[in-house]
Simulated scan of single mutants.
Amino acid sequence: MKGTVQFYAALVLLALAFSWSTAYDPAPLQDFCVDLNDTSSAVFVNGKFCKDPKLVKAEDFFFPGLNKPGNTSNREGSAVTPVNVMQIGGLNTLGISLARIDFAPYGLNPPHTHPRATEILVVLEGSLHVGFVTSNPDNRLFTKVLNVGDVFVFPIGLIHFQFNRGNTPAVAISGLSSQNPGVITIANAVFGSNPPISTDVLSKAFQIDANLVKYLQSQF
Rank of each mutant, 00 (worst) to 15 (best):
A23E: 04
S127C: 12
F62T: 12
N67I: 05
T72G: 06
A15P: 01
L13H: 11
S203T: 05
F163E: 00
Q6A: 15
I120T: 13
V5R: 10
Y106A: 08
N180H: 07
S97L: 11
F49E: 04
C50T: 04
P28K: 11
S135K: 13
R140L: 14
C50D: 03
V190N: 04
V213G: 07
P105D: 04
V190Q: 05
N164L: 05
P155E: 09
V56M: 04
F18A: 15
T113K: 11
I101C: 09
I173Q: 03
S40T: 14
E125M: 12
R75W: 02
L36N: 11
S19N: 07
V56F: 02
L158R: 06
Q219N: 08
L11V: 10
V153L: 14
T168F: 08
G149N: 05
G157T: 06
S198P: 02
K214M: 10
F163I: 11
Q162P: 00
V153W: 03
L13D: 12
V148P: 02
E76M: 12
L66R: 10
V183H: 03
P196S: 13
N211A: 15
V45I: 15
G166Q: 13
L176V: 07
M86R: 15
V133D: 01
V183Q: 13
A58R: 13
I184S: 12
P105H: 05
V43H: 08
